[in-house]
């Protein structure tokens, strides 16, 4: 519940607060968001599998975001679209995690 409130609060802050992040960072932020979403899906999955560990989630959340944004930045500097690697890996993992979440939820519903 607290987590959900935090998410809603964050969305509201983003809408209301006019923060000016330079335009050049926008592409890196998109990749970072993808990495963050991957961590969230992973957290939901582990929550359903009852092996959720907050410290692993938090470190993964920030670590993946920084790594993805860093790779995108490095790719930009080298002229190689490395961000595609992050998109493919995190995109694939999101779908995998979603498939597992779906199965766990269905199994849970069946056992009721």
């Amino acid at each position: 519940m607290i987590a959900f409130i935090g998410l809603v609060l964050g969305i509201l802050i983003g809408i209301v607060w006019n923060v000016n992040i330079p335009d050049k960072f926008t592409p890196y932020m998109s990749v970072a968001i993808l990495a963050c979403l991957d961590s969230v899906f992973g957290a939901v999955r582990s929550l359903l599998s009852k092996n959720f560990q907050p410290d692993i989630f938090i470190s993964g959340f920030f670590g993946n975001a920084v790594l993805a944004a860093g790779l995108a930045y490095l790719g930009d500097k080298m002229g190689v679209p490395i961000y595609l690697a992050a998109v493919i890996v995190f995109g694939g993992r999101i779908f995998d995690n979603f498939a597992i979440i779906r199965r766990l939820l269905i199994e849970k519903a069946r056992s009721l």
Binding site: I2, A3, F4, I5, G6, L7, V8, L9, G10, I11, L12, I13, G14, I15, V19, I21, T26, M29, S30, A32, I33, C36, L37, V40, A43, P54, F57, I58, F61, F62
Partner: peptide, 16 residues
């Protein structure tokens, strides 16, 4: 801590 992390995610999503 999870709420703060999700708040950051929410902010990033709405900002983007």
């Amino acid at each position: 801590l999870i709420a703060i992390v999700l708040m950051i995610l929410g902010f990033m999503l709405s900002y983007e």
